[in-house]
Design a binder for these strands. Structure first.
Lengths: 90, 90
DNA sequence: AAAGACTTGACAAATTTTGGACAATTTAAG
DNA sequence: CTTAAATTGTCCAAAATTTGTCAAGTCTTT
Protein backbone atom coordinates (compact mmCIF):
# COMPACT_ATOMS: atom_id res chain seq x y z
CA UNK A 1 0.00 0.00 0.00
CA UNK A 2 2.79 2.49 0.70
CA UNK A 3 4.53 1.02 -2.29
CA UNK A 4 1.77 1.62 -4.78
CA UNK A 5 1.37 5.07 -3.37
CA UNK A 6 4.99 5.94 -3.87
CA UNK A 7 4.91 4.57 -7.33
CA UNK A 8 1.90 6.70 -8.18
CA UNK A 9 3.66 9.76 -6.85
CA UNK A 10 6.81 8.95 -8.69
CA UNK A 11 5.09 8.43 -12.00
CA UNK A 12 2.87 11.44 -11.76
CA UNK A 13 6.00 13.46 -11.17
CA UNK A 14 7.82 11.86 -14.08
CA UNK A 15 10.60 10.55 -11.97
CA UNK A 16 12.46 7.45 -13.05
CA UNK A 17 12.99 4.50 -10.78
CA UNK A 18 16.69 4.98 -11.14
CA UNK A 19 16.43 8.62 -10.14
CA UNK A 20 14.38 8.08 -7.05
CA UNK A 21 16.57 5.18 -6.09
CA UNK A 22 19.54 7.49 -6.26
CA UNK A 23 17.88 9.98 -3.97
CA UNK A 24 17.14 7.26 -1.48
CA UNK A 25 20.64 5.89 -1.97
CA UNK A 26 19.50 2.41 -2.73
CA UNK A 27 19.70 0.03 -5.65
CA UNK A 28 17.11 0.53 -8.34
CA UNK A 29 16.20 -3.14 -8.24
CA UNK A 30 15.46 -2.75 -4.58
CA UNK A 31 13.21 0.22 -5.09
CA UNK A 32 11.40 -1.64 -7.79
CA UNK A 33 10.68 -4.36 -5.31
CA UNK A 34 9.70 -1.93 -2.63
CA UNK A 35 7.16 -0.26 -4.82
CA UNK A 36 5.69 -3.63 -5.55
CA UNK A 37 5.66 -4.57 -1.87
CA UNK A 38 8.18 -7.31 -2.33
CA UNK A 39 10.53 -5.54 0.03
CA UNK A 40 9.95 -2.89 2.66
CA UNK A 41 10.88 0.73 2.87
CA UNK A 42 12.98 1.64 5.81
CA UNK A 43 11.62 4.01 8.37
CA UNK A 44 14.10 6.68 7.29
CA UNK A 45 13.02 6.46 3.69
CA UNK A 46 9.63 7.74 4.63
CA UNK A 47 10.93 11.10 5.74
CA UNK A 48 12.93 11.51 2.59
CA UNK A 49 9.98 10.55 0.43
CA UNK A 50 7.68 12.95 2.22
CA UNK A 51 10.07 15.76 1.43
CA UNK A 52 10.69 14.78 -2.15
CA UNK A 53 7.03 14.54 -2.97
CA UNK A 54 5.89 17.21 -0.53
CA UNK A 55 3.50 14.92 1.25
CA UNK A 56 2.37 15.12 4.85
CA UNK A 57 4.73 12.87 6.71
CA UNK A 58 1.88 11.58 8.79
CA UNK A 59 0.10 10.06 5.83
CA UNK A 60 3.08 8.17 4.55
CA UNK A 61 4.07 7.05 7.97
CA UNK A 62 0.64 5.73 8.69
CA UNK A 63 0.59 3.74 5.50
CA UNK A 64 4.04 2.45 6.16
CA UNK A 65 3.11 1.33 9.64
CA UNK A 66 -0.11 -0.25 8.45
CA UNK A 67 1.92 -2.30 6.02
CA UNK A 68 4.22 -3.36 8.77
CA UNK A 69 1.28 -4.41 10.88
CA UNK A 70 -0.37 -6.35 8.12
CA UNK A 71 2.85 -8.13 7.50
CA UNK A 72 3.08 -9.41 11.03
CA UNK A 73 -0.47 -10.69 11.13
CA UNK A 74 -0.75 -12.10 7.67
CA UNK A 75 -1.89 -15.69 7.50
CA UNK A 76 -3.27 -15.69 11.00
CA UNK A 77 -6.84 -16.29 11.98
CA UNK A 78 -8.82 -13.68 13.87
CA UNK A 79 -6.77 -10.87 12.45
CA UNK A 80 -9.54 -8.33 12.61
CA UNK A 81 -10.44 -9.20 16.16
CA UNK A 82 -6.83 -8.91 17.14
CA UNK A 83 -6.48 -5.55 15.44
CA UNK A 84 -9.53 -4.26 17.23
CA UNK A 85 -8.23 -5.57 20.51
CA UNK A 86 -4.91 -3.96 19.80
CA UNK A 87 -6.54 -0.60 19.20
CA UNK A 88 -8.28 -0.84 22.54
CA UNK A 89 -4.97 -1.41 24.21
CA UNK A 90 -2.84 1.26 22.63
CA UNK B 1 -2.08 -8.99 27.97
CA UNK B 2 -2.04 -12.68 27.15
CA UNK B 3 0.54 -13.00 29.86
CA UNK B 4 -1.52 -11.49 32.63
CA UNK B 5 -4.42 -13.56 31.46
CA UNK B 6 -2.51 -16.79 31.67
CA UNK B 7 -1.19 -15.86 35.04
CA UNK B 8 -4.70 -15.22 36.28
CA UNK B 9 -5.82 -18.58 34.96
CA UNK B 10 -2.86 -20.33 36.44
CA UNK B 11 -3.33 -18.82 39.87
CA UNK B 12 -7.04 -19.30 40.01
CA UNK B 13 -6.38 -22.94 39.25
CA UNK B 14 -3.66 -23.21 41.88
CA UNK B 15 -1.02 -24.22 39.46
CA UNK B 16 2.60 -23.42 40.16
CA UNK B 17 4.82 -21.72 37.66
CA UNK B 18 7.05 -24.74 37.72
CA UNK B 19 4.15 -27.05 36.99
CA UNK B 20 2.78 -25.11 34.08
CA UNK B 21 6.27 -24.64 32.73
CA UNK B 22 6.67 -28.39 32.78
CA UNK B 23 3.49 -28.87 30.80
CA UNK B 24 4.67 -26.39 28.23
CA UNK B 25 8.10 -27.95 28.31
CA UNK B 26 9.90 -24.72 28.94
CA UNK B 27 12.08 -23.26 31.65
CA UNK B 28 10.22 -21.88 34.61
CA UNK B 29 12.21 -18.64 34.43
CA UNK B 30 11.03 -18.28 30.86
CA UNK B 31 7.39 -18.75 31.76
CA UNK B 32 7.77 -16.22 34.53
CA UNK B 33 8.97 -13.74 31.95
CA UNK B 34 6.25 -14.65 29.52
CA UNK B 35 3.54 -14.06 32.05
CA UNK B 36 5.02 -10.66 32.73
CA UNK B 37 5.25 -9.89 29.03
CA UNK B 38 8.99 -9.82 29.05
CA UNK B 39 9.08 -12.65 26.57
CA UNK B 40 6.50 -14.00 24.19
CA UNK B 41 4.55 -17.18 24.11
CA UNK B 42 5.06 -19.27 21.04
CA UNK B 43 2.16 -19.84 18.75
CA UNK B 44 2.05 -23.51 19.74
CA UNK B 45 1.85 -22.70 23.41
CA UNK B 46 -1.52 -21.11 22.87
CA UNK B 47 -3.15 -24.35 21.83
CA UNK B 48 -1.72 -26.18 24.79
CA UNK B 49 -2.83 -23.46 27.16
CA UNK B 50 -6.32 -23.40 25.74
CA UNK B 51 -6.60 -27.09 26.45
CA UNK B 52 -5.11 -26.98 29.88
CA UNK B 53 -7.36 -24.20 31.06
CA UNK B 54 -10.31 -25.15 28.89
CA UNK B 55 -10.50 -21.78 27.22
CA UNK B 56 -11.82 -21.00 23.76
CA UNK B 57 -8.78 -21.09 21.55
CA UNK B 58 -10.04 -18.08 19.67
CA UNK B 59 -9.86 -15.82 22.70
CA UNK B 60 -6.32 -16.71 23.59
CA UNK B 61 -5.20 -16.53 20.02
CA UNK B 62 -6.70 -13.12 19.56
CA UNK B 63 -4.96 -11.82 22.64
CA UNK B 64 -1.72 -13.38 21.59
CA UNK B 65 -1.95 -11.81 18.17
CA UNK B 66 -2.89 -8.44 19.58
CA UNK B 67 0.24 -8.56 21.68
CA UNK B 68 2.29 -9.37 18.67
CA UNK B 69 0.78 -6.45 16.81
CA UNK B 70 1.34 -4.03 19.65
CA UNK B 71 4.90 -5.14 19.83
CA UNK B 72 5.58 -4.25 16.23
CA UNK B 73 4.04 -0.80 16.49
CA UNK B 74 5.24 0.18 19.90
CA UNK B 75 7.01 3.50 20.06
CA UNK B 76 5.70 4.68 16.73
CA UNK B 77 3.54 7.70 16.15
CA UNK B 78 0.13 7.37 14.55
CA UNK B 79 -0.31 3.89 15.85
CA UNK B 80 -4.05 4.11 16.09
CA UNK B 81 -4.43 5.53 12.62
CA UNK B 82 -2.24 2.78 11.28
CA UNK B 83 -4.22 0.10 13.06
CA UNK B 84 -7.44 1.48 11.65
CA UNK B 85 -5.94 1.62 8.21
CA UNK B 86 -4.74 -1.91 8.63
CA UNK B 87 -8.20 -3.11 9.53
CA UNK B 88 -9.57 -1.52 6.39
CA UNK B 89 -7.06 -3.42 4.35
CA UNK B 90 -7.34 -6.88 5.82
C1' DA C 1 18.28 -3.94 -33.66
C1' DA C 2 19.56 -0.86 -30.15
C1' DA C 3 18.45 1.64 -26.06
C1' DG C 4 15.92 2.74 -22.02
C1' DA C 5 13.02 1.48 -18.12
C1' DC C 6 11.80 -1.81 -15.20
C1' DT C 7 11.57 -6.71 -13.31
C1' DT C 8 13.11 -11.09 -11.63
C1' DG C 9 15.61 -14.60 -9.34
C1' DA C 10 19.32 -16.23 -6.97
C1' DC C 11 22.73 -15.83 -3.67
C1' DA C 12 25.68 -14.24 0.06
C1' DA C 13 26.14 -11.15 3.84
C1' DA C 14 24.50 -8.80 7.65
C1' DT C 15 21.37 -7.97 11.24
C1' DT C 16 17.71 -8.96 14.38
C1' DT C 17 15.04 -11.80 16.93
C1' DT C 18 14.34 -15.58 19.66
C1' DG C 19 15.05 -19.17 22.66
C1' DG C 20 17.01 -21.72 26.20
C1' DA C 21 20.16 -22.36 30.19
C1' DC C 22 21.79 -21.12 34.70
C1' DA C 23 23.05 -18.85 38.69
C1' DA C 24 21.96 -15.44 41.80
C1' DT C 25 18.57 -12.84 44.09
C1' DT C 26 14.26 -11.54 45.96
C1' DT C 27 9.77 -12.37 48.00
C1' DA C 28 6.39 -14.77 50.76
C1' DA C 29 5.06 -18.25 53.93
C1' DG C 30 5.55 -21.34 57.56
C1' DC D 1 15.46 -19.06 60.12
C1' DT D 2 14.27 -22.22 56.34
C1' DT D 3 12.09 -23.49 52.49
C1' DA D 4 9.52 -22.94 48.37
C1' DA D 5 8.15 -19.88 44.64
C1' DA D 6 9.10 -16.57 41.61
C1' DT D 7 12.10 -13.07 39.49
C1' DT D 8 16.19 -11.13 37.43
C1' DG D 9 20.20 -10.82 34.82
C1' DT D 10 23.36 -12.37 31.56
C1' DC D 11 25.25 -15.09 28.22
C1' DC D 12 25.09 -17.76 24.10
C1' DA D 13 23.53 -20.22 20.07
C1' DA D 14 20.37 -20.99 16.67
C1' DA D 15 17.01 -19.42 13.76
C1' DA D 16 14.76 -16.19 11.10
C1' DT D 17 14.54 -11.94 8.67
C1' DT D 18 16.27 -8.46 6.18
C1' DT D 19 19.63 -6.41 2.91
C1' DG D 20 22.40 -5.70 -0.85
C1' DT D 21 24.23 -6.92 -5.29
C1' DC D 22 24.24 -8.87 -9.80
C1' DA D 23 23.28 -10.74 -13.99
C1' DA D 24 19.86 -11.82 -17.00
C1' DG D 25 15.30 -11.08 -18.58
C1' DT D 26 11.02 -8.66 -20.38
C1' DC D 27 8.72 -4.98 -22.66
C1' DT D 28 8.30 -0.83 -25.09
C1' DT D 29 9.90 2.74 -27.98
C1' DT D 30 12.71 4.53 -31.56
Amino acid sequence: MIGEHIRALRESNDVLLRQLAAQLEIDQAMLSKMERSERSFKREHIDVLAKIFKQPKKDLLTMWLADKILKTVKSEKFTKEALRLAIDNV
